[in-house]
Nucleic acid binder design. Structure first.
Lengths: 210, 210, 210, 210
DNA sequence: AATGAATGAGAATTCATTCAT
DNA sequence: AATGAATGAATTCTCATTCAT
């Protein structure tokens, strides 16, 4: 039994699982120490593995950081894709699900938010970070704008500008996430959700309640 | 003679001016290289001064960073204080001035935005950074809420919740700043201002135009 | 069936063949990357085998390097032994064959020359390397001196000092090899051979032509 | 006194002197440990300085090594230049001086020879090393060939081929240096000089004695 | 006998800080 | 007050070696 347990812990893990394990440790460490202070030693210790393991699986620290950002981006995006392509949902339901998702436990996990904003803070000096997210950001904006446009016609909202609403909602969500990260005692997830809903209610009063 | 020569040299600059010179260099360098990559050498080179100068004036790198954050915070805050305490402005005018200020050249200078978000990204791991801003953030929120409350009564906006509006506006501004920082080609300052105004117009339609 | 499959696999190769395969890869890699930069990974990759194989067959990197030097030394020596002990050759023919051999394709293979000089360069700090060659160097010198002494009496060359000629020829050959290694475009094998012959012609003009 | 000594040892040394100090330590360390085993720590310890000093003065280990090779090359070359351009010497005297120089204490210092051959051994894989020496090697060969050509006409040596003699002498000198490096007990400097002279005597018997 | 993921000691390099000038 | 060469702790990365499979 002991042997089996041992072999399970060190050898029989797939390369992909080991990479994920390291990415998880990286997320935790960035949240704890900050992007400018995390060391490889922090990460490997957190993962319970040896010093050299990161270079074995990711070649360099920089590549590990990039893969970590990509992991979080992909995770966020895939959640939204499922919602957008769900044939059972009406337009309004999709929007509601989108917002619910934006303020769900998975997304507003403070460790992940810390990673998000750590990377945003470095974006100006490291365009690579932006390029990782650029595509999905554009995609999500396009999907959301489309949903707003559909709801505009479905609900007869002549004054709504779907693009403006999308930009405004997106910025609002970003700002609320920042609030959730930096003032966890000030703003609760539920409140953040309510704030987002409050804005949507100003645009589509027949479909959403503040 | 020696004194004259002396005063003409670099030594003639006051300690305060030297500190500001270094803070300015720090802002530029954080924007260019990112908080996690700036070195003291970058900063002193940018300032055209010698290696050891930062330790002379700020004791340590960490203290220089803190003073830099404080400098930007104070600068932002003092601009808003002037607006809030301007006896010549009506409530609506103060709000307009506030928003105009939030998206003015001084504030949305990309170097300064980069510094802002660099620090936000480290906030979770370095509460000191947050503590520098906490007071002024609370103050500004309090002022803004008060303005919204006044306008609510002045304008007969029964449904407006001043606190909610303040939280929403603040988050929206944060999110728009992030957009201005990371996608400078996507969102222009003027548009960001319009988005903010669009939100205020939903709350106070008689006073603001989308 | 399993046995057949087995024998067809990599395991069917004898340990000795595996060792030679690794030594060949080592020669190639030292030539390509330099003794100070070759890694075990380079060598095993070049050999198309797995990481751990060297330690299995040679215990350590150092031992592989020593065996590689020994391989090249033995190869060189055995060629000369054949010539020296060839009963069909006259003294002069043996000397000619020796020189021809010294500048033949087998010996002046640039990969092998690179290995030779890589080891010579480390000799002062690693006397082991020297000790591997010391015996055969002494043997060859002894044989060559003997040949020169025989030719001196056979040809009536009163002024020739066989030992001096041997030292001079040996140094000359070393120097020409170095030239062939470092300036392959400057000195061609045929020219190097001519230079060596030119020297021998000064000592034994009746037997060798410049 | 102690203070003066201290300041002299650490601060008042010029950058150039510090670089030379490090190069000298590098020569000693390469000789002692071999090019493939020297570490920066060996070098800085040998120089009695701190870890970071090499990167301060040479940026990287590789550059230090290159500068070390260049130092030895320049040193050798400048000695020969002086001889070649000495107006007081006849052609034969210049050649004699050249050879005397080639086997003088300065040149056949075993530490420096070890460095020479350490680099030659890496030449195939690092063309940079060769490029550092290429120019001066060509220059020296050109000078020496010219001297041999002059002596040929001065002394009426119809059969001498100056270029061939130059190639042969140069290779011989290289080979003798290698001997001096690897078998210090076998070949003495004086003997090596004699061997070189022996060869020249075969070409210019009226001017040189074996 | 062979593999290759994992290890961890050791190397080069970086950089905040110090201090003689 | 200012300089900048020097320091040395800390960090990333390398790579020979091990060992479960």
């Amino acid at each position: 039994m002991a042997a089996a347990k041992h072999s399970a812990s060190k050898r029989s893990v797939s390369a992909q699982a080991r990479r994920k394990q390291l990415i998880m440790a990286t997320i935790k460490c960035i949240a704890q120490k900050g992007l400018s202070a995390v060391t490889m030693a922090d990460i490997t210790t957190e993962a319970g593995l040896s010093q050299g393991i990161v270079n074995l699986h990711f070649q360099s620290k920089e590549k590990l950081l990039i893969e970590t950002l990509r992991y979080i981006s992909d995770e966020y995006r895939s959640g939204l894709d499922n919602i957008f392509h769900d044939p059972k949902k009406t337009t309004a339901e999709k929007i509601t699900a989108h917002i619910r998702y934006d303020f769900s436990r998975t997304i507003i996990d403070r460790n992940k938010l810390a990673v998000w904003f750590a990377f945003w803070g470095e974006t100006k000096s490291r365009p690579t970070y932006l390029s990782i997210c650029a595509d999905y950001i554009a995609d999500i904006a396009s999907n959301l704008t489309q949903l707003f446009a559909q709801l505009k016609t479905e609900g007869n909202y002549a004054n709504v500008d779907p693009e403006l609403t999308c930009v405004c909602y997106t910025a609002l969500a970003d700002g609320l996430w920042l609030d959730l990260l930096v003032t966890p005692k000030g703003l609760k997830p539920k409140q953040a959700y309510n704030v987002a809903m409050h804005y949507l209610a100003t645009q589509f009063p027949d479909h959403f309640q503040a």
